[in-house]
């Protein structure tokens, strides 16, 4: 994923999950059924809203980190992809898990959250550890 595209998509991610915050507030204000009367759903939608927006910002920071630290392009491309997909999986996993929850626990989509979190985590570790000299040899 190119740096420009990553930056745009990260900011878009922030915008989407911030907009979701407005939606949640509106549901609270309107005392929407299925929201105020469903604590489990409410908790997981809130988690999705908060994690999606914050991890969008983390993506912006990681993109900036890659440029500032001159992370080799072969790494930076994959770091940006993993970080962005990971952030999406966490945010969407919480939201979908909350929307499709069972009697006591979130639904199956919640399993996307640990996978996404691992991708954001490995991306962050990679930005911190990979140096400009860590050049992946050409495959040809």
């Amino acid at each position: 994923m190119s740096a420009d595209r990553h930056l745009r998509l990260s900011i878009a991610l922030v915008a989407i999950f911030l907009a979701m915050g407005l939606w949640l507030e509106a549901m609270y204000g309107l005392r929407a059924e299925g929201w105020v009367d469903d604590p489990l759903r409410r908790e997981f939608l809130r988690l999705g809203h908060a994690h999606g927006a914050l991890l969008g910002l983390v993506n912006v920071a990681l993109g900036w980190g890659c440029e500032r630290l001159a992370t080799p392009a072969a790494w930076a491309t994959k770091i940006r992809l993993a970080a962005w997909v990971g952030a999406c999986l966490v945010g969407v996993g919480f939201v979908a898990g909350g929307l499709l929850h069972g009697p006591t626990d979130p639904g199956l989509p919640i399993l996307a959250v640990p996978a996404g979190a691992l991708m954001v985590l490995t991306s962050s570790v990679a930005v911190a550890l990979v140096r400009p000299s860590d050049i992946v040899p050409s495959s040809d």
């Binding site: 992809l81 993993a82 991708m119 991306s123 990679a126």
Partner: peptide, 13 residues
């Protein structure tokens, strides 16, 4: 190493 980036970034997930 080749593919190390993909392995380390996506492998745990």
């Amino acid at each position: 190493r080749p593919r190390a980036a993909a392995l380390l970034l996506f492998g745990p997930a």
